[in-house]
């Protein structure tokens, strides 16, 4: 069963449990726009030349400036906070591997699947990946979120 993020609000744990089930798949598109890139640098001050200097990056085998991997963590935060059909959530764990570079203005497809649910502690696990326009996975990992009562 595939779902796109919704905006249904719920504050009931039991109601939330019914909305997201093991096996559910969510998809979202994210664009690493100039605004996102500039905003990240402005906020976190990471101006390492790999991220800001095309020549530096090209000399090291990349096509150009490599976007900060943690921009993807921001997209995950948006997905959990805004795209799931439940709002009473807290991120407990994110494990992410950055397997290919991401460049400015790339559009990424994000896919997350609910791989487990722990009723005892009202906790979901997702596996996820980001892929680029060529279909290449650029990052993958797991997310654990809890339902707030």
């Amino acid at each position: 069963m595939e779902k796109r993020g919704g905006n249904v609000r719920s504050h009931s744990t039991q109601t939330s449990i019914k909305k997201v089930k093991k096996g559910d798949i969510f998809r979202q598109q994210f664009r690493v726009s100039g605004e996102v890139y500039a905003g990240f640098i402005q906020l976190f001050k990471d101006k390492n030349p790999l991220h800001t200097d095309d020549d530096f990056a090209k000399a090291r085998g990349f096509q150009g400036r490599v976007m900060h991997g943690n921009i993807l963590n921001g997209f995950i935060s948006y997905f959990i906070g805004e795209c799931l059909p439940l709002k009473n959530v807290i991120i407990q764990t994110i494990k992410i591997q950055f397997v290919k570079p991401v460049y400015l203005d790339e559009t990424l497809d994000f896919r997350a699947e609910v791989t487990d649910f722990f009723e005892s502690v009202h906790t979901y696990e997702f596996s996820f990946y980001f892929s680029n326009a060529a279909g290449t996975k650029v990052a993958r990992g797991n997310i654990q979120i809890g339902l707030l009562s």
Partner: peptide, 24 residues
């Protein structure tokens, strides 16, 4: 309380058993 969640998840995975919130 936050680590308790991680402990329960790890225990359930290790022993391949699931508990209910009432049980724990």
């Amino acid at each position: 309380s936050l680590n308790h969640i991680q402990l329960v998840v790890a225990i359930e995975k290790h022993f391949k058993q699931r508990f209910t919130s009432t049980e724990i």
